[in-house]
């Protein structure tokens, strides 16, 4: 399923305090967080963002705090993907772990303009600017991360591993209640 949406364009070093301010970090619900996404950067964002829209930004997107609610807030606001020159490492991991698609492409990050219609094929990593018909390739994920993404994030992967440990040969057993095999 391709991702399609309008581009919201921002600069480099968009930090997690801008993505979701510290005063909202007590919130857990993605929809609630989404109402405050990008609040200190662009007060119009949360009001006008449409489900499916794509955030396009420069280098070091998501730098700063380890707050996992940053990608969650974007997801809750309806953002379907983030395209950036590159990502800060904790945001990169958090986004994959909570299931927010991210794409690293310096060319796309530079070329796509605000408001343009963007189409992304998650399987191939190909990003298209539908307004200019330009096409960009994103950096492929390492094989291991592709596997995590395919499973829907870190937690489904961990659940699967825990289940395998409890029941390595697939036969019914009395699962260890403590989950500590």
């Amino acid at each position: 399923m391709p991702i399609t949406g309008r581009a919201w364009k921002y600069g480099k070093d968009i930090d997690t305090d801008l993505i979701i301010a510290g005063r909202y970090c007590n919130l857990i619900d993605a929809d609630e967080l989404g109402k405050h996404a990008m609040e200190d950067l662009d007060a119009e964002f949360a009001k006008k963002v449409q489900r499916g829209d794509v955030v396009v930004a420069g280098s070091n997107f998501g730098c700063g705090s380890s707050r996992e609610v940053a990608p969650l807030a974007l997801k809750g606001a309806g953002v379907s993907a983030v395209v950036a020159e590159n990502f800060a490492r904790i945001f990169y991991r958090n986004a994959i772990n909570i299931g927010l698609p991210i794409f690293e492409s310096p060319e796309a990050a530079a070329a796509i303009e605000a408001g343009h219609r963007v189409e992304i094929d998650p399987a191939s990593g190909v990003i298209r600017d539908l307004d200019t018909q330009k096409q960009f390739k994103s950096t492929p994920f390492p094989e291991f991360m592709q596997m995590i993404i395919a499973k829907g994030g870190l937690l489904p992967y961990v659940e699967e591993r825990l289940a395998q440990r409890r029941n390595p040969d697939g036969t019914p057993t009395n699962a260890d209640e403590r989950g500590q095999n």
């Binding site: 380890s66 707050r67 996992e68 904790i90 991991r93 958090n94 772990n97 909570i98 994030g153 870190l154 937690l155 961990v158 825990l162 989950g179």
Partner: peptide
């Protein structure tokens, strides 16, 4: 690391 990752380490 993130919160989900910490939960994974606990588990």
């Amino acid at each position: 690391i993130g919160r989900s990752e910490m939960a994974a380490i606990w588990a």
